[in-house]
């Protein structure tokens, strides 16, 4: 099973050239919000189209950035609980049993090119140039 985590460019640390741990962290009491990748594919959608449909971007100039990872990367005792979003996404899950420290360790091991950025309804590996012009 693969999951998608949507990333926000505000969490990119240009000095460290990585996303901070705030990009992949438990919500207060609610686990880590992700999307079930195979569920998206089963609906004959691409990840980008799915994100654009159910997760409106903070600004229109910010194309969605996301990370696809396999459940085998998570701690052995994690669970995934389906929770349909208010926007109607039935593929949305909350990951439970993943500590903030474990989540941080996992995120920080990723290289930038392992993340994806949407472009023309498909996606390509993220580069630092994609994030270079972004400022809060």
């Amino acid at each position: 099973m693969k999951f998608i985590r949507i990333l926000n460019a505000v969490h990119y640390d240009a000095r460290k050239q990585r996303f901070t741990s705030l990009a992949f962290k438990n919500s207060t009491g609610g686990g880590i919000s992700v999307i079930h990748y195979e569920c998206i594919l089963a609906q004959n959608q691409t990840a980008c189209r799915h994100i654009e449909q159910f997760y409106p971007p903070p600004t229109s100039s910010q194309p969605p950035i996301f990370w696809i990872f396999d459940e085998t990367r998570l701690p052995a005792d994690f669970t995934a609980k389906q929770q349909t979003t208010q926007s109607g996404d039935i593929c949305h899950y909350n990951l439970l049993g993943v500590s903030d420290k474990a989540a941080r360790d996992l995120l920080l091991r990723q290289r930038l090119m392992e993340f994806q950025i949407c472009e023309n309804e498909t996606s390509r590996p993220l580069t630092s140039a994609d994030l270079g012009n972004y400022s809060l």
């Binding site: 640390d13 000095r15 705030l22 962290k25």
Partner: peptide
């Protein structure tokens, strides 16, 4: 050299380099 980042739970990260 410092920076700050907004957290989804209302937390604020301050970083020092």
């Amino acid at each position: 050299e410092t920076d700050a980042f907004p957290g989804l739970n209302g937390e604020v990260m301050v970083t020092v380099y």
